[in-house]
Design a protein around this nucleic acid. Structure first.
Lengths: 213, 213
DNA sequence: TTTGCAATTGAACAAGCGAATAATAAACCC
DNA sequence: GGGTTTATTATTCGCTTGTTCAATTGCAAA
């Protein structure tokens, strides 16, 4: 008598949690938070709905875990970009700005994912705390890159400059995601680098263009 | 025998639609789109759920109508701001930027409202069309203010400058809404005016400060 | 191989959703 | 005032949701 095929396999706790978080992120990106039902997430992870409760206690807790994972991943990507570029502080900052304003960072699905979680921050203080920590980490990274520029800092102070540069990156990223056809390829990146240069009083786009050539 | 109190009153079509849209906006701002059920919206408007179908055909159609109303209101506010300020083009542009980065425009509830609708744009082309029209109208307004400045336009062109200024206003507005306690009162407005000046190569903050004094 | 444990299933549950529809009553016309 | 219209209500339907829990079963230790 042949041994019957196993109905399921027992994975480690880490692997299961990982699979469920990944399935949640995929579904939110594709159909929004509304489409990420426990049944759909479980099916995406190849398990049954009961496991969500077993590992996370509730769907809400899984959503929070997925959001934290998403934000951590974006920070990690940004850190890698800023470290991968060869050259002086000018080139590294310009590459950092440009990378944030081109695919795959600029992506309608990514914005859907981000917006899907954003509108949950209103009543959920724990989620807002995750967002704040992530925002400050990103801004500090940017501030370090700005501080390394060979120039005399502007009148507003380093903090204000980091806030401003973070702001224009966020704003242009959002517009690029929301209306992909409204901008030519590379247009947002060039505008971003030029604008950051204007804010900092530094000819950033000149260094950027020479580096790309 | 006293005449019994009427169980309900018949309103004009416009008044009913208005009441339902208003109730929808209030609920989305307070509890997100998920909390804006047909029953809750109807209760907020003082009617029964059936009327939503009677006037809008479906809940989805009411959501679209409410979104269009929200966006139209924001455009109107912006237009009023840009027209209310006395003075030259420099002062008007600076006031426009600053107004967009102070209460009541910067408001956590407003962001909740905006985010609640944003994550619905993914699969809804009609909603995206509303968003695009609104975005372009806002950007054109900004571009007109920029074009009126007494200066020689920058190397990037007027369109790129408008995109950049729009981007930084959006980005700073978002950060101010998401983390109200992270910035001092007026800090974002000053950063915004200074940054727009940097992007345009124009000493905007000097004119702004003199006008406020 | 046998035993014990807990990861996983699968069916069922109550609650809430949007939608549909027949009955009702307010307002308008003559 | 009586008759007509239709805005509005009240009730119901079918469906999906998140959650629950006893039964099952893969897997590792003994």
């Amino acid at each position: 008598m042949p041994t019957a095929a196993p109905k399921f396999s027992r994975l480690s706790e880490d692997a299961r949690r990982e699979a469920l978080i990944r399935a949640m992120l995929d579904l939110v990106a594709l159909h929004g938070v509304a489409g990420a039902t426990v049944r759909a997430v479980a099916a995406g992870a190849g398990v049954t709905p009961g496991l969500i409760r077993h590992y996370f206690g509730s769907k809400e807790a899984l959503i929070r875990a997925a959001y934290a994972r998403l934000m951590a991943g974006m920070t990690e990507d940004n850190r890698r970009i800023s470290e991968a570029v060869e050259g002086g502080a000018e080139v590294r900052l310009a590459a950092f700005v440009a990378a944030s304003l081109c695919p795959p960072v600029v992506d309608p699905q990514a914005m859907g994912l981000w917006a899907g979680f954003l509108h949950r921050m209103q009543g959920d203080g724990e989620m807002r705390a995750v967002h704040e920590a992530q925002y400050l980490a990103y801004r500090d990274l940017l501030q370090d890159l700005i501080a390394a520029l060979p120039r005399t800092p502007g009148a507003g102070g380093l903090r204000a400059e980091a806030i401003a540069c973070n702001g224009i990156i966020d704003g242009l990223w959002l517009e690029g995601c929301a209306l992909p056809e409204a901008f030519a390829p590379g247009e947002l990146a060039e505008i971003g680098v030029r604008s950051v240069g204007g804010i900092l009083g530094f000819d950033l786009i000149h260094h950027w263009r020479r580096d790309r050539a």
